[in-house]
């Protein structure tokens, strides 16, 4: 009798496994989970909640990532073994094959609007800062758009690298400076040299003679036109005066 009781009592001394409380808190939505993933960009720390991916950084260490996340996003972070399918989803997202869901809580409504708009820029294309500002209904807030993008907690995934200055300068990039930005854009198929040549000559739009439509230079719609069928415009007035209307897809101007 006594042995049984003592044995049973020992069962009561069992400790919960390491990390148990953290896993429970993450499941209850009180902490985000994170893991490090090997991607085309090298190792990237990725955090996610039940709502979607909440952060991604090429941090030097787990501690650095965790410290940055808790400061910037203001939620707790728990390192976990990633779900089996997440690595595949991440590489699909980075190669443009799918869209993940994102969790942008903790950002201001303005930043959220900027990032959501940025998500709509297709792979291989770029838009000016002013375009984002106009599209979200704050045409004067160009600098604020720049700030919101510079603080993008999910670079690469939310393609802030696809927003560039209209004068052709690639501009700074939180995800590793202008060089990193250029590399990623080239990887995505943007013809950077052409883009910069146009911008330096003051051309902001390209029109196709046969359609009489003008677009941003990287827009998908001009992709089949031969180079000699392009005309270039400095601004909207010039394009409209030549009888061209703005593309409904890249929306270089309000239609």
């Amino acid at each position: 009798m006594a042995t049984v009781m003592i044995d049973l009592k020992r069962l009561g001394d069992v400790k919960a496994p390491a990390g148990f409380a953290e896993r429970v808190l993450a499941q209850a939505g009180m902490a985000d989970s994170y893991a490090v993933f090997e991607t085309v960009l090298g190792p990237v720390y990725v955090a996610w909640s039940r709502l979607g991916v909440s952060a991604a950084m090429r941090s030097k260490s787990a501690a650095e990532f965790q410290e940055w996340f808790e400061r910037e996003i203001g939620r707790r972070l728990v390192r976990v073994d990633p779900p089996a399918d997440l690595a595949g989803k991440i590489s699909d997202q980075l190669s443009g094959k799918r869209r993940l869901r994102f969790d942008l809580r903790g950002l201001t409504p303005f930043s959220q609007a900027v990032l959501e708009k940025t998500l709509q820029i297709p792979r291989g294309q770029v838009r000016p800062y002013g375009w984002v500002a106009r599209e979200i209904g704050h045409p004067a807030a160009v600098r604020a758009v720049g700030t919101a993008l510079a603080n993008n907690p999910i670079p690469y995934f939310i393609p802030c690298h696809r927003v560039v200055r209209s004068d052709g300068v690639i501009g700074n990039y939180g995800g590793g400076g202008p060089e990193a930005k250029k590399n990623i854009l080239s990887l995505e198929g943007v013809q950077l040299a052409r883009l910069q040549r146009l911008a330096q000559s003051g051309y902001r739009y390209e029109g196709v003679k046969s359609t009489k439509i003008f677009c941003f230079p990287t827009c998908y719609h001009g992709r089949h036109a031969r180079e000699e069928n392009f005309v270039f415009f400095h601004d909207e007035t010039e394009a409209r005066a030549a009888g061209y209307r703005p593309c409904k897809d890249c929306r270089p101007a309000v239609a």
Partner: peptide, 30 residues
């Protein structure tokens, strides 16, 4: 959070004694 931290060992021990293995115990406790 306090509830989890204060009771995790107890509830895990209970789950282990009820289910008989650590894998199921973690699920029940969670």
């Amino acid at each position: 959070e306090r509830l989890v931290r204060d009771n995790q060992d107890r509830i895990f021990a209970l789950s282990l004694a009820l289910t008989g293995n650590r894998h199921d115990a973690e699920e029940v406790a969670q």
